[in-house]
Design a protein around this nucleic acid. Structure first.
Lengths: 131, 131
DNA sequence: GATAAGGCTTCCAGTTAGTGGAAGGTCAAG
DNA sequence: CTTGACCTTCCACTAACTGGAAGCCTTATC
């Protein structure tokens, strides 16, 4: 099938699919006219990629996962390790954002939000460096 | 002061400070030798920038904030609006990550993580497209 | 005065994971 | 035969820096 169909079926923009070929994640065949010809297996890999990316796996992480996916003899422990690593990273990101959120929410709370120019948010941002 | 000192006092890498000049966030003076000469006010703006970036404000958002910061007549409501916008974006990011995290945690949980090749994580990633 | 270390300068390239657009070839319908 | 949709490559751009090379400037030491 052509890139348009595979794009729709995998739920990925054609541009992204071409990019994935560029970086060697997939290697679709080519027709006589130069068009990419995708097999069902190519589609499958793209779906896999799309879902893994949605789950926050980096491209390089996905490369590992795809390799494991295609290796019949791999242990599930290998996959679990990668997934857990990812989970920790997501947790760290959430914690970081949460801390930001709390500070920011405090600042927003303490700001009158009226016509007066006095604003605790700017005051805090401009505070002397304390690190 | 030179870039080294301002870098240390603002807690930002020199590279970053040069970058901030490049994109017009600051405009330090120049000495006869071509070195940047930073005023206390420059330092203050850099500290402001650093803290705002830590709180997740984008560079463009910071540009607005800096303008407001330097405008004596602005209303605190303007600042509050920008901060709130930022807060919503952070909340959305957290929610997205949380959803990812939950799915991924489920998958990790359900994987035996042993020597057998059977792995629910890969099975799920490779599932037929359902969107 | 020579020299070495460290700080400063600019510029180029690379990072992540794509996205936008231009110029042009191909295919199917009317 | 032409129109429009689809495909191709290539180049540039995104955000917010970071790394490195090549080359001045300053300061200290011998």
């Amino acid at each position: 099938m052509n890139i348009g169909e595979v794009s729709e079926r995998a739920g990925l923009p054609a541009k992204t699919i071409r990019y994935y070929e560029d970086i060697g994640m997939i290697t679709p065949a080519r027709g006589e006219n130069g068009y990419r010809r995708f097999s069902e297996q190519d589609l499958h890999k793209l779906v896999f990629l799309g879902r893994a990316r949605l789950l926050g796996f980096s491209i390089e992480r996905c490369r590992n996962l795809l390799a494991l996916y295609e290796d019949q003899g791999r242990a599930s422990a290998d996959v679990k390790r990668i997934a857990q690593q990812n989970l920790s990273e997501i947790d760290a990101k959430i914690a970081g954002l949460q801390a930001m959120r709390d500070t920011l929410a405090d600042l927003v709370q303490s700001c009158a939000g009226d016509n007066r120019p006095d604003c605790p948010i700017l005051k805090d941002l401009g505070a002397a460096p304390n690190r």
